[in-house]
């Protein structure tokens, strides 16, 4: 349960960094002033996200505000988010990067096979479309290649209808790191959701680790 609190969310991001999985720049705000300060430092536009044990699926609870372009909107949205939560739950200020493709990546300890990793099409329809593929850790190069190619959305990921796709080698690298993370740290579950395609390549916009 601990990981659902703010301090551990920092640790979750730290864990990703330790394994060289790129994350969007972020900071935790204690109050509205603080949030504005961080937003300026990170650079507009930013997103605010409520980190609370009460909120598992942020979009369903409207517990996030995206694409905030100035201090005024940061303060306004901060006030709104604060009302949704007990006073001490922190609010995350994060760089907002428009993305064309949303992925989900993660892992879990399976009772039968041990650590596993997963990648799939992200976004609000993840659980409905279930376009995901799984591998057992350690995943070798061939495993990761076939894991990506197995996705129904693979043609979309490669780039379709004039849309530029993701760098498959970068995704493979992230999955390789994730496999290493699962193998070495063995958390019960980890969710990188979403894993966004931005102008800087693929970055983890949110992560949750359960031990």
């Amino acid at each position: 349960m601990a990981s659902k609190t703010g301090q551990n969310s920092t640790m979750d991001f730290t864990l990703l960094s330790k394994y060289n999985i790129p994350c969007l720049p972020f900071a935790f705000a204690k109050n509205a002033q603080d949030a504005c300060m961080h937003a300026k430092k990170i650079g507009f536009p930013v997103a605010l996200k409520l980190i609370s044990s009460k909120v598992l699926h942020k979009s369903e609870h409207h517990a996030l505000s995206l694409n905030l372009k100035d201090e005024y909107s940061v303060k306004k949205e901060y006030a709104r988010l604060q009302k949704l939560t007990p006073p001490h739950d922190p609010i995350l200020v994060q760089k907002f990067s428009p993305s064309t493709i949303e992925l989900i990546a993660g892992g879990k300890m399976d009772s039968q096979f041990g650590p596993t990793i997963m990648v799939g099409l992200g976004g609000i329809y993840t659980e409905i479309l279930k376009d995901v593929s799984i591998r057992i850790c350690p995943a070798q190069e061939r495993d990761i290649r076939s894991m990506i190619a197995q996705l129904k959305s693979f043609p979309v990921l490669k780039g379709a209808r004039g849309q530029s796709g993701i760098s498959l080698s970068q995704l493979a690298k992230i999955l390789h790191s994730l496999s290493l993370l699962m193998e070495k740290e063995q958390p019960a579950e980890i969710d990188i959701n979403p894993l966004l395609l931005t102008s800087d390549g693929l970055v983890a916009a949110d992560v949750r680790v359960l031990w």
Partner: peptide
């Protein structure tokens, strides 16, 4: 299952 990942990776 608590995470998306776990709910999407059944046995």
């Amino acid at each position: 299952a608590r995470s998306h990942t776990a709910s999407l990776s059944g046995s």
